[in-house]
Amino acid sequence: MPVTQKDLMIKPKDALLKGHFACAGCGSALAFRHAIGSVADKAVLVVPASCASVYQGSGKGVAFNVPTINTAFAASDAVASGISRALKRKGKDDLKVIVWGGDGSAADIGIATEIGACDRQENILHVMYSNNVYGNTGGQRSGDTMIGARTATTPKGNTTPRKMVPFILIANNARYVATASAAFLEDFVEKFQKALSLEGFKFIQIDISCPPNWRADSAQSIEISRLGVQTGIWPLFEWDRETNIAVLSRPGKKYGDKANRKPISDWTSLQGRFRGITDKELIALEEDTERQWNFLRKFM
């Protein structure tokens, strides 16, 4: 059943309490409130080293109102596997084991662990919130960093394409894989709920704005994410193993056609991380975006 704006307004306060440490305009905390809030009484969270290990708060003031296990950077999907198996033994497999982590763990250091859990068909959902950078260490390049982005370790601009993590998991026989955007929360929560209704390894990559590391105005956090979809930078789709078909999602459907897209520079111009991007880099970014769309079309 489609999730409506009204549904979203009811529960979120249950999962993320006041006093969290997220930066102003953090798309991850916003996505957390809505998604985790929609299953707050059933969720068990596993958080690898990531912004979420910080913005959950500290000591007795932890703002995550669900059981939360913090793990080492590369350990989260294996810890989640252990929890899922133990809950099964205890007859509590109605609980939802969710990994909530960034792109550093999902695209880089934890990718072997993630593929391992996927390969074993562990009954967990991994939500990779993508800000395309190592956020809380000060904004270094990750495997998810876009071409042309100026990061703390690519001050002259990143030159290599992004890892297409969702496709890596499709290739490894995940049960369900989707992308989402913090600008389209109804779509995200719908996918989130659908993923949790399925047995096996599920994966959602959600684009979230990171105002400090993107050097963007926190008031434009959602606007930037929306432009990510409208410029085609961020395809919105879901893929189900049973059909082996990728379906473009409602909010992003028309951007499958290049003619409907806004220029990528509409999106880059709002972010300081692209300040000084050259025409050549912009073309390379466009080409990489198209490369991802072409890959996606093979499943459509």
């Binding site: 080492a72 294996a78 810890v79 252990g82 198996r85 133990a86």
Partner: peptide
């Protein structure tokens, strides 16, 4: 890590 997750689950 898997053992840790299981141990946290009791």
């Amino acid at each position: 890590a898997a053992c840790m997750g299981a141990a946290w689950s009791g």
